[in-house]
């Protein structure tokens, strides 16, 4: 455990040194993310000005929905994103060899060992936006609802990570799957929409259990709005376990087929 911690700290200090070197681009990227989230919030603000209650839920809930999706995305990118997204590169250019010979768990090396420091700044922005939102719309929060919300965000982050691992594992079969990855990832843009718009029950089922789009944004919202029943956490836990196990099994199976050096 000590070795793992040392490796984790050392490798991520090196990453932050590199980031500091390219500080201009680092700041620009953060600015782009801020503009992105402002526009996402403006989208609902403008719609709300036009149709008011026609959106079905209060504007504050829509903002929580958008921020929850951003929070999940930022947590994924902070802890797992860099590792998961480098998987096709490792397979295409054979650099996975370098990881396989290291005396650490391969799952840790591939997905968990790299931090994306930019997302740490994003997390601070997210917290700041949440504080503004809660005070502006006088949303009643208690310690229990905050803790439940954070637990649900942990679930959604794990689900999102496992889903992405499963997508990127496709690179063992297809050499170029950029467009396919973009296609599957683009489904998660739907997570910023309220679950009520998916009126077809089959569509709803698909977007909860197969491509867990509804889980990512709507489940945390339901928790903070205290609409949660025990069953919501049971569903979230089941999906988390299912996708995590699939991702682990998929990775281990993929390693058996890995042929090394630009395979």
């Amino acid at each position: 455990m000590k070795d793992y911690l040392q490796y984790y700290i050392k490798s991520n200090i090196l990453i932050i040194k590199r980031k500091a070197y390219f500080s201009k681009s680092f700041i620009m990227e953060i600015c782009a993310d801020i503009i992105n989230i402002i526009f996402a919030l403006l989208f609902y603000q403008i719609l709300y000005l036009n149709v008011g209650k026609g959106l079905g839920i209060p504007i504050s809930d829509l903002f929580i929905l958008v921020l929850s999706v951003k929070l999940t995305g930022d947590l994924y990118n902070l802890f797992f994103g860099a590792g998961v997204q480098s998987l096709p590169y490792h397979i295409q250019y054979g650099t996975l060899d370098g990881l396989l010979i290291k005396p650490f768990n391969i799952f840790f090396l591939m997905y968990l060992s790299k931090l994306n420091w930019k997302c740490l700044a994003n997390l601070i922005i997210d917290i700041f936006l949440f504080i503004i939102l809660i005070s502006r719309y006088e949303i009643a929060v208690s310690l229990v609802s905050v803790l439940s919300y954070m637990a649900m965000i942990c679930f959604t982050t794990l689900i999102f990570t496992a889903f992405n691992i499963l997508i990127y594992l496709g690179s063992i079969i297809f050499v170029r799957l950029d467009a396919f990855i973009s296609l599957l990832s683009s489904f998660f843009t739907l997570s910023t929409f309220p679950a009520a718009i998916f009126r077809n029950s089959f569509l709803k089922w698909v977007f909860i259990y197969l491509i867990p789009v509804i889980v990512i944004g709507n489940f945390p919202l339901m928790v903070i709005r205290r609409e949660q029943k025990g069953s919501l956490f049971v569903i979230a836990l089941t999906i988390t376990l299912l996708f995590s196990l699939l991702a682990y099994w998929g990775t281990m199976s993929m390693l058996k087929h890995y042929k090394s050096a630009s395979s």
Partner: peptide, 8 residues
């Protein structure tokens, strides 16, 4: 969804 709720 908005139009189904009777809004425009």
């Amino acid at each position: 969804f908005v139009y189904a709720n009777g809004y425009q």
